[in-house]
Design a protein around this nucleic acid. Sequence first.
DNA 1: TCGGATAGGAATAAATTTTTCCCCTATTGC
DNA 2: GCAATAGGGGAAAAATTTATTCCTATCCGA
Lengths: 114, 114
Amino acid sequence: MYERKIIPNLNCGFDLIGEVLFGKWKIRLLWFINEGHKRPSELQRKIPDASRRVLNIQLKEHELVTRKIFPVVSPKVEYSLTEFGRTLIPVIAALGQWGDENEVRLRDVILRQV
Amino acid sequence: MYERKIIPNLNCGFDLIGEVLFGKWKIRLLWFINEGHKRPSELQRKIPDASRRVLNIQLKEHELVTRKIFPVVSPKVEYSLTEFGRTLIPVIAALGQWGDENEVRLRDVILRQV
DNA sequence: TCGGATAGGAATAAATTTTTCCCCTATTGC
DNA sequence: GCAATAGGGGAAAAATTTATTCCTATCCGA
């Protein structure tokens, strides 16, 4: 595990939500779990560009998700949002909506600056 | 300027908004400009932990902010949100609000995992 | 019996972002 | 002339995040 060298500052709501939400795949993980895609393999199929590794790591962060292991073979695991994680869903929805509403313009602006 | 080696995927609203919003200081820049702190030096004072450099860079990204130069000495510059940038304000407000509402819990969860 | 699916871990490499350091413009004031 | 102010920029280093590669297991189907 990587040890931070700089302690994050947590001075305001922006800092705080940034810490939990701004991983590359975090939002999508929460979103898809909320939609009912619970198993790791499902999530990996939904987010094929992410490495398995990062998904596993991000799923463990900040107690947004619980992990239930079924003692069967082959292994079965199901993720669910915690109560706390669920409170993020409306916020995430707002983010996705803004992105969708401005899709054309965003695509243009982003690609010009890449 | 750093040249990306991997083209970002822009498949959904989450990708799109992530590209414009998820710089370390981006949200605060937009927020403070919206609050009327327009000059570079003001913004630097509001965000003392950021390096000047990054603020300048992030202010130029994605056409969220316009830069007006006043031809006086010593130099004066004012940033303003573009029409487009302004549409992000409600979204940013929602982010900050969630962070504020969950401040205690977040501080705890984050510091335990740092 | 081999290949694939299930789930995950460790170590390491690569990519990306942010910071640091030093430099430049021009004017005013001492 | 030199420092201060107000605004930037490039190169390189440091920090951080993601991706890659190779491992562990069991079971099912061809």
